[in-house]
Design a protein around this nucleic acid. Structure first.
Lengths: 349, 349
DNA sequence: CCTCAATGCTGCATCGATTGTGCAAACTGT
DNA sequence: ACAGTTTGCACAATCGATGCAGCATTGAGG
């Protein structure tokens, strides 16, 4: 039992075993065979190391080998179903490769994002994923200066391979589902579909808005100017906007496509104050998925993005050492109201 | 612009500035004043470093200083509202202190937990938080061997300071609320409250079960053997158990306290198949909080744990350098059905 | 008996940053 | 003008692990 407060080093093991530090290093690593250390010596050294509770100092190893064994990922925030799923997958794949994941959240602020990337570079992460980048070009510039391989996820960059959700297809399919449920009937504003939430300068939202527009146009009723209300992600502003919309129209419109769960929280804040009858005459869709939102007083069509698939593809790009500027698409999944249990249970057991 | 693919080091800056490496190191750090480097030299070195895009190599610094600037946290899983909130707070507090957070998930497996702690130790994290530890004693043993300060969160350990949610108070208050809503009336089994979900060997669940039992006893109706159904956290088993219970009783009981959101997903799978009338005659509580779950077809009393407060206290213990075996309690918050918006908006805006 | 090769290991420089020590030059006071 | 102090910096050791180059042994072959 090591009585000292300091951790044992290879020098301690060397002293205890009578071997040299380089032999200890080789014996504890993979290279002892090619360095012609006898099996007996290796065994002896290993048992002493185990007895001393030795474990390598990654700082020293990383310094010498110029790699850290760390993989970095930047996400906008932890406290979000989509991104925390990405974290979970990111970590699982990292462990599979014997790497240690470091996940940092940028709060969607370009400054914070840059600082995080800087930090990860100083820690010499072996490669990096950036999810929902706010300034992909700046990130690529920094990574290239540091010779660091990186992949953009969920929001593409021009400076590196990217893996994104097929926002266009997801939103187009969702819009078509809403239209099937509640076909565009009369010509009044109340008979139309509305798009609420998100930031039109945001890549994902822009694609979804485009799809919404195209799907409506394809159905013979291109959206008017007031039909797309990209009021950001905050619940509060979504609540204000849906209330204002209902005021303007004199009631709920035929359908609402809410862009993001946070905006949906706000919309719900308004809807929950309405009589159930009103809700039943409208159709609600939400881009993104929450199991409880699927169980509301009224049916909600949802889209579940494939966080695991996005990360899988990102790792695949890294594994293949592919540096060409690919833009890979991963399809989201449509979730019909109140049917998630079948899927959930067929997945897990 | 640095043409090489390698990152600039202090030696590069030293060469370019005509100063020595030690002067560069001092100039770029905090110690230049006490090392009596002239302000002019410092400025010159800093501008060259900036031009070269220099940033320190943390592996080298960490090796020399025997600290890494990393803080570790182990959580059971990322993909969970409570724990991802903890991640968010953990990261914010870490940044406030100029540290880099490393968060790893143990999947509630003791083996994985040990491996993660080992890994964090090899990366020389400056201190570590362990949330929902599965084997706190083993963790403490490893940390002590490595001379690593650590704090247990959400589930206490005997080997280090701990910060936990006041599970007893939260569950007792929730139980009393349910009793207020639906006072124990007749003597039949259907007129009672039931506790569903969680693992009785788990610290948090055990405390909650104890509180449930005490609150019922205090109300003059101690729970019978079948009234506490700790069937784990999986939605599937919770769904099976609530269905079996309703079968046994011939309908929904007077009230159900569901222990965890995941179990609640399962319960909901059953409840959603029942007529709304049946639900309205029962009262539902859930330990843990989800904004959408607060908007179901029927009122749900929820408990929101104070993830931010837990982490704040954990950091406070670290900051105070307090190593005595404190067990600090953080109170959860009761959330009445459908009232969360007031709070949400008063928080954020 | 001597050469040559294989075996099993050791020594030493190295990665990049920090820090204790030392040492000129400039400056102060007398 | 000279001792003593301050200023401003350079040198070199160090952190722990790695890997190249080399150096004794031992054994085989002629």
């Amino acid at each position: 039992m090591p009585r000292a407060s300091r951790k044992a080093t290879i020098y301690d093991i060397a002293r205890l075993s009578g071997a040299s530090a380089s032999t200890v290093s080789a014996a504890l690593g993979e290279s002892w065979r090619e360095r012609r250390i006898s099996e007996a010596t290796v065994e002896a050294i290993r048992s002493i190391a185990a007895a001393e509770g030795y474990s390598a100092n990654m700082q020293a190893r990383g310094l010498r080998k110029a790699r850290s064994g760390l993989v970095g990922m930047v996400i906008p925030l932890h406290d979000n179903r989509f991104f925390s799923s990405m974290s979970q997958s990111f970590e699982a794949f990292a462990r599979e490769r014997g790497l240690v994941p470091v996940i940092a959240s940028s709060m969607r602020e370009p400054g914070e994002e840059r600082r995080i990337v800087e930090t990860l570079i100083t820690y010499a992460v072996d490669y990096m994923f950036i999810a929902g980048a706010t300034d992909p070009d700046a990130v690529s510039a920094m990574c290239n200066a540091a010779n660091l391989r990186h992949v953009f996820v969920d929001l593409p960059g021009r400076g590196a391979p990217s893996v994104v959700s097929d926002n266009y297809k997801g939103a187009a399919d969702l819009t078509r589902r809403l239209l099937t449920d509640r076909p565009i009937s009369g010509g009044t504003c109340r008979d139309r579909l509305y798009f609420i939430g998100g930031d039109p300068t945001d890549y994902a939202s822009a694609r979804r808005i485009e799809a919404f527009r195209d799907a409506l146009t394809e159905a013979g009723s291109p959206p008017g100017p007031g039909q797309i209300i990209a009021c950001g992600y905050a619940p509060r502003s979504a609540m204000r906007e849906i209330a204002a919309l209902c005021d303007r129209l004199g009631g709920l419109p035929a359908g609402v496509l809410v862009n993001s769960l946070t905006a949906f929280e706000g919309v719900l804040g308004h809807l929950s104050g309405l009589p159930l009858e009103d809700l039943r005459s409208s159709v609600i869709g939400c881009y993104d998925y929450d199991p409880f939102a699927a169980y509301l007083q009224f049916p909600v069509h949802m889209v579940r993005q494939d966080a695991h698939g996005l990360i899988r593809e990102a790792y695949r790009i890294i594994d293949q050492n592919a540096n060409d500027l690919v833009l890979r698409m991963v399809e989201p999944e449509q979730i019909a109201p109140r049917t998630f249990y079948d899927r959930l249970f067929s997945d897990h057991g």
